[in-house]
Write a protein that binds this DNA or RNA. Structure first.
Length: 426
RNA sequence: GGAGAGGUGGCAGAGUGGCCGAAUGCGCUAGAUUGCUAAUCUGGUGUCUUGGGAAACCGGGACCGAGGGUUCGAAUCCCUCCCUCUCCGCCA
């Protein structure tokens, strides 16, 4: 959520921000509501003050004085009630609109309508050239007996999968390695709930707006399945005032992630690229409110993921995501796209976002700084490794002519010392 | 799922209709005292919001798990929900 005081001071900043993000947003209506509410609530506060004073007089009044006082208080009460009734819907509308105001993107964010206008920052590693007919991850996995989407479709519907044998082992290996990679860097390992209240979805900025992308339990419970561990991790300290000396807090979590993928019919239907459920190791930083430091954290968590990709011998590129492709809350986002031979291109595998205090405001996530002032935290997050997309990259890039898959060095210890997976195919 | 007990400031804990934003203790903090440490004494010590002020600060309003209600007046009474604890049942 944005700071309404800033909005009053500099509405154009927010108009420009919304325009850059290509998100419609009625700033004028918001300012008008704010203005009216502030004026009226002053009146309401005065009425309440008189009401309170009257109550005190009542307590001290003699029985003879009471009836007159009572009458006076009744009249006041009616007046106050009328005013409150008038204000309540306005306040509601303001709150609703406020949740929708996009966080203005950083100056470094490129102009652009959608992902086609993201700006490439660098390419690292050479896409692999094959001296043989390379397979896509699906045909390779099927040939090795590593995947069953038919059975998954029968049991769970489309975009679900069973992984079997070596591929199930590889998934675990990647997750374990990614997790420990971050723990070694001092990130606190966390196991998180993946069922969260609507409140947490709103707090992290996924709602309102992202409801179609999230699975929701039925109305017996107010619970959603998270699309990423970012949600529980960022919400972990919501509602509290942290000791500023303890910041930044760095967390890493491994969790299942659930995505409805509504509106993507016919898109990436083959294989593991777009699925309803996967595992992901996610890094979250909760920091002090300092935009410079925030940028440093952003680059650091980006580098953490790049390190992992380089250690896997995977080629990738980093893009600076353009305004139109940014989410409502993000100040800036870097995506990492990893080379995927079957796509003959780079496919998104990581997404590093920084939010400034946008999520923190919604979550009431604050800290006390060295001067004793209460401030909203800055939050950031990035993927470390998302299982399915990492498996696509590993299978396709490290496949051998005989249909086995080479295991990159860091994963060997997590696979019992094996350097190749699968059996030679005829 | 059944029965019961609770949710009050950083923590512990009082408060059953007005004098309660809330006693007391601990903690924290500033100062005094002190050869050092410990101890002692004194003051300060919630959040949000609004108005005034350059600021220190001052005034108003809201907040005692959340949301509704009763009342001139609610931490206190009523309803719904959430959470915690104890016992029983079921279960990974």
């Amino acid at each position: 959520m944005i700071d309404i005081k800033l909005l009053r001071q500099d509405p154009d900043l927010f108009r420009a921000g919304a325009a850059k993000k290509r998100i419609a947003c009625d700033i004028d209506r918001l300012l008008e509501l704010d203005q009216r509410l502030r004026e009226s609530s002053q009146r309401a506060d005065e009425l309440r003050a008189r009401q309170k004073a009257g109550g005190k007089r009542m307590a001290e009044a003699s029985p003879a004085e009471r009836p007159a006082l009572l009458e006076e208080q009744r009249a006041q009460k009616a007046e106050l009630k009328a005013l409150d009734d008038e204000l309540a819907p306005l306040q509601e509308e303001l709150d609703r609109l406020l949740l929708r105001v996009p966080n203005p993107p950083a100056a470094e964010v490129p102009e652009g309508r959608d992902d086609s206008e993201n700006v490439e920052l660098r390419r690292v590693g050479e896409p692999r050239q094959f001296a043989f007919e390379a397979r896509d991850h699906m045909s390779l996995a099927e040939a090795q007996g590593w995947i069953d989407v038919q059975a998954a479709g029968r049991i769970s519907g489309s975009r679900n999968y069973f992984l079997l044998g070596d591929l199930a082992l590889l998934e675990q290996a990647v997750m374990r390695y990614a997790f420990e990679h971050m723990v070694k860097k001092g990130f606190v390992p966390v196991s998180v709930p993946t069922l969260v209240r609507t409140e947490a979805m709103v707090g992290t900025g996924y709602f309102p707006g992202g409801e179609e992308q999230a699975y929701r339990c039925d109305d017996r419970d107010d619970l959603c399945l998270v699309g990423t561990a970012e949600v529980p991790l960022t919400a972990l300290h919501g509602g509290s005032i942290l000791d500023g000396a303890r910041l930044p807090l760095k967390y890493v979590a491994l969790s299942s992630c659930y995505r409805r993928e509504a509106g993507t019919y016919g898109k990436d239907t083959r294989g593991l690229y777009r699925v309803h459920q996967f595992l992901k190791v996610e890094q979250v930083v909760i920091a002090a409110a300092d935009s410079k430091a925030s940028v440093a954290h952003h680059l650091a968590i980006l580098e953490n993921a790049e390190e992992l990709l380089r250690s896997f011998d995977l080629a990738y590129r980093v893009v600076n995501v353009c305004g139109g492709d940014l989410g409502q809350g993000q100040v800036q986002k870097f995506d990492i796209e990893t080379w995927m031979p079957s796509r003959e291109g780079y496919g998104e595998t990581h997404s590093a976002s920084r939010f400034h205090d946008y999520q923190a405001r919604r979550l009431a996530l604050r800290y006390r700084d060295a001067d004793g002032k209460v401030q909203f935290c800055h939050t950031l997050n990035n993927t470390v490794a998302a299982s399915t997309r990492m498996l696509i990259a590993l299978l396709e890039n490290h496949q051998q002519a005989d249909g086995t898959v080479r295991v990159p060095a860091p994963l060997v210890p997590y696979l019992g010392g094996r350097t190749h997976l699968g059996v030679p195919l005829g």
